[in-house]
């Protein structure tokens, strides 16, 4: 580890520790905790979407399928079978990962645009299946009963741990041979394949990891929400929010998804007082960012000031 990396991860560890201790001090209000929970939640989702779109070149518009399936998996495991939440969490992750693995076989041969639409269609199909499925109470939705029910602080710690883990996971992947293969694939897929990079395997791995982590995040999200309905669980709105966060924060940057999640949740919270207009304003901001600063906040800052946080694409500067 270079000195620069030591400093970066040192700061990361300190910030994480402070955030972890924060709810124990009781200094944060319930409202602040809710905001913090959502920031960490979207940081998880955004991190995974960035892994797919920013590094593996897979633009997914179907993240809601993992979130929705996980919400229902949690409800079935915890409410229908009365199992502890940990089991619901694990089942959610595994089911989502298996779904991603299965879809890899079907969808990964498609080029960018077709893949994007195909993921959306699959989500719509899963929504239709769940709406007609007796086990999950058709369109009537399910409640999520977990005993003992974790406090908001505990939920926050859980999602914070996942956010940190997902960040470190993506970093570890990018620093390994996988990252090298992904970079080669992004620059020239044909040349990369010719030099022995197994593109299909790379993409499958990224998609499956994305399914697993997004699934666990979805499970925690629905632990927090307490009930799950097909229309909400499989709504494209999830993906819209995730895409917004990553674009604002900066695609293909390490810290972009976290910054984006921060900006998205705070902005959403601030705009919620302008009911009806808030989504329109969010949409306009997103388009403005794409046109004016397509690299997002972190991408633009890093370009302007010639630095790169948690660099994994080139040797450290020192």
């Amino acid at each position: 580890m270079s000195r620069r990396m030591k400093t970066e991860y040192g700061v990361f560890a300190v910030v994480l520790a402070v955030l972890f201790v924060l709810p124990l001090t009781g200094a944060a209000s319930d409202n602040a905790m809710r905001i913090a929970f959502n920031i960490a939640l979207y940081a998880v989702f955004a991190q995974m979407w960035n892994l797919m779109c920013g590094y593996a070149g897979l633009l997914s518009l179907g993240q809601q399928m993992f979130i929705g399936v996980s919400g229902y998996a949690t409800a079935v495991v915890c409410t229908s079978y009365g199992m502890p939440f940990v089991l619901g969490l694990l089942v959610s992750g595994v089911v989502s990962a298996l779904l991603a693995l299965f879809l890899s076989v079907l969808l990964l041969r498609m080029r960018g645009l077709y893949f994007a639409i195909a993921t959306w269609i699959v989500s719509e199909m899963i929504k239709i299946l769940f709406t007609g499925w007796k086990l999950v109470n058709y369109a009537g939705g399910m409640t999520i009963r977990v005993t003992p029910y974790p406090t908001l602080s505990q939920q926050f710690m859980l999602i914070l741990a996942l956010a940190a883990a997902s960040f470190l996971l993506v970093q570890a992947m990018l620093r390994s041979k996988i990252g090298l293969g992904l970079a080669a694939m992004r620059d020239d897929p044909d040349a990369a394949a010719g030099l022995g990079v197994n593109i299909f395997k790379m993409k499958t791995l990224c998609f499956t990891v994305c399914g697993f982590v997004t699934g666990i995040g979805g499970s925690i999200a629905y632990l927090n929400r307490l009930s799950v309905f097909p229309n909400g669980a499989f709504a494209i709105d999830w993906t819209i929010a995730i895409v917004f966060a990553v674009i604002i924060g900066g695609t293909s940057t390490a810290t972009g998804p976290i910054v984006g999640a921060f900006v998205y949740v705070l902005l959403f919270n601030f705009l919620s007082r302008y009911a009806g207009y808030s989504n329109i304003i969010l949409g306009v901001i997103a388009i403005a960012v794409i046109v004016v600063a397509p690299k997002g906040i972190m991408g633009t800052l890093q370009n302007r000031f010639k630095f790169e946080l948690f660099s994994s694409t080139r040797p450290s500067l020192d």
Partner: peptide
């Protein structure tokens, strides 16, 4: 600017129009 920006712009537009109609 590549494949993604135009696609995401139309994605944003769809979201805006939907909410304008809703309003």
């Amino acid at each position: 600017m590549g494949d993604e920006p135009p696609l995401l712009i139309t994605f944003g537009l769809s979201f805006i129009l939907q909410n304008v109609l809703l309003l």
